[in-house]
Write a protein that binds this DNA or RNA. Structure first.
Lengths: 256, 256
DNA sequence: GCAAAAGTGTTGTTTCTACACCCATGT
DNA sequence: ACATGGGTGTAGAAACAACACTTTTGC
């Protein structure tokens, strides 16, 4: 109803994590917060809030994220600005939406309650505003970008096995991948490098641990890489997986 | 200096056209407008203006575009929202930037004067604000997207020869393409369809005229295709090239 | 030994690339 | 006839996909 010249500006974020699913594989999940005022009171919505005068857009995304869900993402990128006239029933609101990835261990720290909850990405309740459309777009971007960039490690800890990495791809793309070809592709891209350590405690041959080669930053970000993806390099917490790591460098390592 | 909670919201557009270059090939050009007030008075800047309360983001882009350069683009898509704190010296301004393509004949209608001028894309003057960065990003997007989508016809008229289409690719990607392979790729993608007409008046074998198959809309837009690219389908004006078209359907046509 | 996943090798298919060559028109 | 780009054919290279097979651990 307001006749202000400059519409209200808000920032929201679609956050993704992977969590163990029912059938042994991982499934995509995202956190929603329940609205506590009109419009759409009681409905689930994306975490977000108004942009304040002295913060960046990405800063605003991080801040509202932390405030509503207490999450700190490992990857954060702008998704799209939504400004349809009718997206909010009363006032005119333009939302600049970000999307983010968090590692599983970080996601565990969420305090879930009546107003904050993780939902499986393709079993969402009715959402407020146009948030359903926004989530669909974010999902499309995630799936598309996974195939030509190195964002997958946003879901993982500092080190990981190629099987874990493959599981990320399989969960997001929703299709099985050939382990042999996957290994070759990953090692061939140079984006991933063996640490020399191995993971023991599995009931089979201990797999090698890998980490991302941060020096390799292929041209998939564009001239805005320094602007859009400052959070890509946020170091992960030490892995809190239930496996132990041993350090007997094997002969078959790629680069020691 | 303003302490408003909601920053000012502006919309700008990076518009591209192709025009005949010095060496016989085409070159990318974009229109800039001269600023007539502080800050950056006298500097060249992207066309744009404030978002008003009763218009869409894309509408605002179209409106300001028409007002400042009297251009109507054939393709319009959101590029990015720029919101750095220091991008304007005095007030806080968040700019939602679009990028657009116009056909050559449409571009001819620009009324160039002291305050509106086309510049070759990689020979720009000093620009106001962060517009240099914005143009670089738009250029990157154009070049990237050209390779996996069907936006090239945004530069062309309703019908065109494959040589004209190839010229678009060569000018934007700045590298020569093999005519034979280009033809096969284009025909194989199904995005382009022969009209049956041919272009006469050249001093060699008359090439076939093609048009875009509008029914083919591959999944390169995402769930927002209906939202982001409403201008993609704007029909072009009848071709005003200096060639004549004849209509003798030849036997070697692909589909009549 | 057996199961199970790690890791390597191989083969056939598809796609890409370079380039040769014929075709149809204007001059 | 000849120059010029339109249009087609094709052989080699590279990338991809499917799947067999060997290795190393826990049990």
């Amino acid at each position: 109803m307001s006749e202000v010249v400059s519409p209200n500006l808000a920032v929201s974020t679609v956050i993704f994590r992977l969590r163990p699913g029912a059938d042994g594989t991982s499934e995509l999940a995202l956190p929603l917060v329940r609205r506590i005022r009109a419009p759409y009171e009681g409905r689930w919505a994306l975490p977000g809030g108004p942009l304040t005068a002295h913060e960046d857009l990405a800063q605003a995304a991080s801040r509202t994220l932390l405030a509503t869900t207490s999450l700190q993402p490992r990857y954060l990128e702008q998704l799209y600005a939504f400004g349809q006239l009718d997206r909010s029933p009363d006032e005119r609101v333009v939302s600049i939406v970000y999307w983010a990835l968090v590692a599983s261990d970080e996601a565990e720290r969420t305090i879930e309650n009546d107003n904050v909850r993780w939902f499986v990405a393709d079993e969402l309740p009715e959402l407020a505003f146009d948030h359903k459309l926004i989530v669909e777009y974010a999902l499309w971007r995630l799936r598309t970008k996974l195939e030509y960039s190195q964002i997958a490690h946003g879901f993982l800890g500092e080190t990981f096995t190629l099987a874990q990495l493959r599981e990320v791809y399989e969960a997001v793309l929703q299709k099985p991948l050939d382990p042999g070809n996957f290994r070759r592709t990953m090692e061939g891209s140079g984006a991933v490098v063996a640490t020399g350590e191995r993971l023991s405690g599995t009931r089979h041959r201990p797999p090698q641990l890998y980490k991302y080669d941060t020096s390799v930053n292929p041209a998939d970000q564009g001239p805005l890489s320094h602007l859009t993806a400052p959070c890509t390099l946020v170091p992960a917490n030490p892995s809190t997986t239930s496996f132990r790591t041993t350090t007997h460098a094997s002969a078959s390592g790629v680069s020691a």
